[in-house]
Simulated assay, not measured.
Amino acid sequence: MSIIKNDFEKMTITKIKKSKNSKKLTMITAYDALFSNLFKDIADFILVGDSLNMSFAGKNDTLSATLEQMIYHTNAVCTGAPQAFVITDMPFGTYNTKEQALENAIKIYQQTNASAVKVEGGEDKAHIVKHLTSNSIAVVGHIGLMPQYVRSEGGYKVRGKTKEDEEQLIKDAIAIENAGAFCIVVEGVLSNVAQKITKCVDVPVIGIGAGNVTDGQVLVWSDMLGFFDEFKPKFVRRYLDGANLVKQAVNQYRNDVQNASFPSKEEEY
């Protein structure tokens, strides 16, 4: 039985917007051609996240990711999934001003086949989003728990616990939508608040750690497939025991080498 969706078709911004209230969207991260090729006919869109430096470089946060890294990995992802709708995270420090943001977003567009960029921030970044979308850059917003704010916020904190914060999150979503974002990621927010955010905007809201009340979900692939086993966030469901499966396979390879059962005669030239 095939695991590929028979109804899969490449997403466009128009299709993404039309999915609001009609279809749950699936987003997954990828950082290379190998895995993007595996995901390309299944996920609605692929995010080249700055999470790569946490998942694969062993860093404590996302802040060390550079524009050059994001461009390199976006190119790899686009090579593996040339027909996919690929979104690139704009890394920390690359959109402090609207002029800087546009210059760096243009580099991403010119040097990769990314379909859009993602920007963290609410009302405080609405003018940045507006400047990008006014200059033909497609933007995904990101509000709630924002990894690039981890040091200034003093850690990863769930949002929406107070009435004031709930109201601010709604203002953030509306501001980002009005600035031209075609989609908004909402991370680490109480589910009842995420539901209110989802209802207050006309663009799709993609949740992560925000309950099942949003228009779709996004997960880091190494979390959901169990390859990153040092820490499991509460909101992650592991669909594969990846780390142990790999360890078992490599252990079997070592044993086969040591007992000379690999390579066999069939594996010789």
Rank of each mutant, 00 (worst) to 15 (best):
I28H: 04
I28P: 13
I28D: 02
T29Q: 02
D32Y: 08
A33Q: 09
L34R: 12
L34D: 08
F35P: 03
S36N: 04
S36K: 03
N37R: 09
L38N: 11
L38Q: 10
F39R: 02
K40Q: 15
I42F: 11
I42R: 07
I42G: 02
I42P: 01
I42N: 11
I42V: 13
A43K: 00
D44V: 00
F45P: 03
I46D: 12
I46T: 08
V48I: 10
G49H: 05
L52Y: 15
N53W: 05
S55T: 13
A57W: 14
A57I: 00
A57R: 15
A57V: 04
G58T: 05
K59I: 00
N60C: 00
N60E: 13
L63N: 06
L63K: 06
L63S: 06
S64M: 02
A65P: 14
T66G: 06
E68M: 01
Q69G: 06
Y72I: 02
Y72L: 11
H73Q: 06
N75P: 00
V77H: 08
C78T: 13
C78H: 11
C78D: 03
T79G: 04
P82C: 02
A84V: 10
A84D: 06
V86F: 10
T88N: 13
T88R: 08
T88P: 15
D89N: 08
D89K: 13
M90Y: 06
M90W: 13
F92E: 00
G93Y: 02
G93M: 14
G93I: 03
N96I: 15
E99F: 03
E99M: 01
E99G: 00
Q100A: 09
L102M: 03
L102P: 04
L102R: 03
E103Y: 10
E103N: 14
N104L: 08
N104F: 07
A105Y: 01
I108M: 12
I108L: 12
I108Y: 09
I108S: 08
I108Q: 06
Y109P: 00
Y109I: 09
Q110A: 11
Q111S: 01
Q111T: 01
T112G: 08
N113R: 11
N113H: 11
A114M: 13
A114F: 14
A114P: 14
A116H: 10
V117A: 03
V117H: 05
V117L: 00
V119G: 00
E120Q: 07
G121V: 04
G121A: 05
G121R: 02
D124H: 09
H127S: 15
I128H: 10
V129I: 15
K130P: 04
H131S: 15
L132I: 12
S134C: 01
N135D: 09
